[in-house]
Amino acid sequence: MGNSSLKPLALLATALFCVWIATTGRADIPFLLTGIVVVFAVIRATWATFFAGAHDFSHRGRPWPAFRLLPLLSYPFFFLLELVSATWQVALVALQPRIDLHPAIIRVDSRIQNRTALVLLANEITLTPGTLTIDADIPRQGLYIHALDLGKDGIDGVKGQIRRLEHRMEGLIR
């Protein structure tokens, strides 16, 4: 029991502690000690509500997936690369002399079971220019995505892009 819940807790505490060091911008002994106290207080105030037995889960399910460490560390680089390439494409669309858009709202069914991971995937799709998550059909793992321009590849091009993001997300969680 302790083993199953320890890993997300350790991850959250580490992330919070890093954010504490970043906001204060110092690494003296008093700051680190105060940081430990504050991180403990914040986790004490939010863990039971938002992470352990999360309030917005109607039936049983793991609210918080266990992440693999190595993909988690390499994840930001791939994500930023994806971001830059998509941004470049949309910038070209915005600056071309005549705007000829074919927007569409399509449904993409995902394989990801864990709801938090699905939400992270939805946020990632929103962050990538060119695709925007409008709604999620959480019980059946479907995402409704507004695509800016279907382009010449049609629906399959957008779905392929989503699949790539989804594949990486699947490698991230256990």
Binding site: L12, L16, V19, T49, F50, A54, T116, V119, D135
Partner: peptide, 14 residues
Amino acid sequence: SFIVKRSMALLVPF
């Protein structure tokens, strides 16, 4: 929506 609820839950501690 659920997406906003869940993402906010991840954001609140920070």
